[in-house]
Amino acid sequence: MAEPGAYARRSFVYRELAACGARFRGAGGAAVAVDFGDPEGERRSLARLGLCDLSPLPRIGFRGPAALDWLRAKRVRGLDRDNRADIQRSGALAVRLAPTEALVLGNPAGRGNLCDRLEAALDENPEPGCYKAMRRDGSFHFLLAGAHAADAMATLCGVDLRPLAFPAGSVAQTSVARISTIVIAVALGEVPAFHLLGDSASASYAWSVLVDAMTEFDGVPVGLDAVRHAIGANAGRSAG
């Protein structure tokens, strides 16, 4: 176990997590809430409705006219349509946000580290027209998972996020509870989930609003272990 304060990088909501009884473990230079004292219960909650803070984990953005080509040259798959997410071999997620912007989310299950690899590559060999976007600092990153995830989001977001209208791989850059947010639909095995990325300065606000929206469906904060379990239990499909 670790304390968030022991790391220079800290989640934007580590106080909220600690107040819910989070137990932290070091990962990628920061403390991640791995569970809230009830790993079994959290796995069950996640199938119904759970909210997990992935903010301390790696993610990075690339911008500029050459960004997509550069990523393709680095063998990042997909990127052929705006507002579309594609799962990479490592389990990372590559998202094309615009013809000049992409986003890469590391695999929460932690295999490989595409984000760090790409960042190092660009730092070493800068590419004209391809610029880094500090998504790990500029955006919070939460995962809202479970059968009721779309129901809970419907109280906050005006885009139809039900599975039929917004299947895994769909991306909406929209307004959630009045803050600009990137919503990415994924499937953690059988469990539908949304990656939510928004203004990091609004992280506390967004967390509290989401926790409030979950109460209707008995949703609770869950630790990273519950997410990893859901991914791991269905590793074949989620990496597909």
Binding site: R10, F12, R15, T155, L156, A177, R178, I179, D199, A201, S202, A203, S204, Y205, V209, D212
Partner: peptide
């Protein structure tokens, strides 16, 4: 409704 009023906090706010 819920009166959603976004508030932005700096990392040093607390």
């Amino acid at each position: 409704g819920r009166g959603l009023e976004p508030v932005r906090l700096t990392p040093m706010h607390h």
